[in-house]
Amino acid sequence: MRRWVLIAVPYLWLLALFLVPFVIVFKISLSDVALARPPYIPQFSWDDGIWAFLRELDFENYIFLTTDSLYWKAYLSSLKIAVFSTFLTLLVGYPIAYGMARAPEEWRPTLMMLVILPFWTSFLIRVYSWMGILSQEGYLNQILMWTGIISTPLTILNTNTAVYVGIVYTYLPFMILPIYAALDRLDGSLIEAAEDLGCSRFQAFWLVTFPLSRNGVIAGSFLVFIPALGEFVIPSILGGSKTLMIGKVLWEEFFSNRDWPVASAVAVVLLLILVVPIVLFQRNQQRQAEAEQ
């Protein structure tokens, strides 16, 4: 009995927070747009029964997505931004995690605190403050001009560069924490052994440390990649009119076109794109758990 309850908890969680919202969105994606409140005609009602629903079933909103190059271009562009910013986050996050894991034992709680501390401020405000840093008259340009590195201000705000900065900044802790966890558990004697056996410090890192932190790297990368793909807030605050991301397209379908069915179809396709990395992530986690046993 107790076992059943224990199993039921995660499934209930999944049901309430994933499956139910997904079914609602999927249902809207099959309906037709209408001037009503809410603005669509449901394709399915319990009164008509399931057969009436199946008879009427069409995927016209999904077919519509294939008729306009905007959608796949936006998916591709989001994918590109997500992959690239995940890589950048790894590049920045790994040395930080490494430094934390190598720091003296008594410093570590403080360093950990410093990584988590930004979460105490609203995400929105933190992204906002980047506007003040990156704008034409912003702090970054002021410092660069003052030191004489540049003579005319750089245009960073409202470009894709600013979007990368925003994503890397925002998701950095999600990269650092799993890598730190992996490095922290690392048995120091392995590195000593590698060095005793003739490895240079870099070789020891590349042949021993990095492979052993692989699971942390993979976990961190997924934790950054998945939310970055559907990101809307960062590109709309820091990006320019030219930044094309699927989150923005979704917004326009929803707000400008008032076309909830097509907006839902865009969201369902986005989810399908995400299912692949999510499944890979799950498998990685599982394998890691098994390896530890």
Partner: peptide, 10 residues
């Protein structure tokens, strides 16, 4: 659609 095209070039 025209607006998106104008703004983002796509």
């Amino acid at each position: 659609r025209l607006w998106t095209k104008i703004k983002s070039g796509t």
